[in-house]
Design a protein around this nucleic acid. Structure first.
Lengths: 206, 206
DNA sequence: CCAAGAACTGTACCGGCGGTGCGGATTCGG
DNA sequence: CCGAATCCGCACCGCCGGTACAGTTCTTGG
């Protein structure tokens, strides 16, 4: 990693924290560069304008989350051959990861952008939509594998159920932040997990 | 309603739409007063500063939502004496209300504030927390009534389940806005409704 | 080791916005 | 018709996003 790339990464890290705490519009470039220890000229050397910063932040965020999901769901499959058990394990791991964050989850950048949509260009908005669609499709594929092995107790739309995981996480983050209680996010994920168990697990197992 | 109060209401309405679309920090007073048709002096006659505007917006939003919940859950109880059935009816009504919004749900002001917390003073943040706590307590009370009549199929924390409704709504709003698909919010509420049904309804009823 | 780019700094400037202050005008109810 | 509520006009401050551009320091490949 060259020196320039390291600086870019530092700027993005600082900017992301600031944006999640105050919103994009209220995050001044000046405070970011002050914390990063460079000048305004230095900033504009790396990013053409504020929107370019947003694009890179988002790209970085999506990439990080993708890796997290890769990791969590791979470990689930690794610990059990049964698709349902693997998913339940993965959800527990996900809940643990969220619970282990020192100061609670810092916030979902997609949610932050969603509530400031008019500030961003089409490219950014398309990237948020595409990411969410990707995550939902990923969850849905897992659920289809489960449903094939375990007929669900009720006729449920698997797409909606896949959506629900994202919704519960985003909602859990908001509630955790608003009430200043990080554990609420973990509990919401576990509650969703219980829903999945209730839907698919045969009565004998529950 | 005096003329001043009408102007205040107009300002709050315009400001809320702007804040939900661009965030609080990026919402300029100038554009609000331009749309409201008054001058900056007129604005500062009604609100001491931008934070006073935020406080009033939030107060208004919480009040509106409280009335909505009062209405929906009262109608549920009105249509069925059974606590579970009443709740299930109320959730369906809630989903319908959300689905009937012409351009989709405009956004949750509490979520918007949550993602810009550093911009607001303690009073505003306390009000958001208190409102969320109030709604959760309301849902929890209903669930306790249900659990007393129908022993839940699994040992579930009713507080968490009450939280889940708020989470699913907030998450559903974000997903609906991000994917530009208003129906997703409705479906998430109905999916939560199904969870409640699955948890409490005796096998004979399902 | 040195040249060539990459990675910055310094300075000057513009326009927009939040916010303050205050005097004056208009409007409206009693 | 009086006085209070409501709103306008105007001048001003400081911060911020963004532009422009010349100069400096650091890094790295040949």
């Amino acid at each position: 990693m060259g020196k320039g790339e390291a600086t870019r990464e530092r700027i993005l890290e600082i900017a992301e924290a600031a944006v999640l705490a105050k919103g994009f519009g209220a995050t001044s470039i000046e405070e970011v560069i002050a914390e990063a220890g460079l000048t305004k000229s230095g900033f504009f050397y790396h990013f053409r304008d504020k929107n370019a910063l947003a694009r890179e932040m988002l790209r970085r965020y999506v990439e990080t989350n993708d890796r997290l999901f890769d990791d969590v769901f791979a470990r689930g499959r690794q610990l059990s051959d049964d698709p349902l058990q693997a998913f339940l394990i993965s959800l527990k791991l996900l809940a643990e990861v969220m619970a282990d964050l020192p100061n609670g989850h810092p916030g979902c950048l997609i949610a932050s952008i969603c509530y400031q949509e008019r500030l961003f260009d089409r490219e950014v908005r398309d990237l948020t939509a595409q990411s969410v669609r990707g995550w939902n499709a990923r969850f849905c594929k897992i659920l289809e594998g489960i449903a094939a092995a375990y007929p669900p107790r009720e006729a449920i739309d698997l797409d909606d159920l896949a959506d629900m995981l994202s919704c519960v996480v985003d909602g859990g983050i908001i509630m955790s932040k608003t009430l200043n209680d990080p554990r609420r996010l973990e509990r919401q994920i576990l509650l969703f997990r219980n829903y999945v168990k209730l839907l698919f697990a045969p009565a004998a197992l529950s």
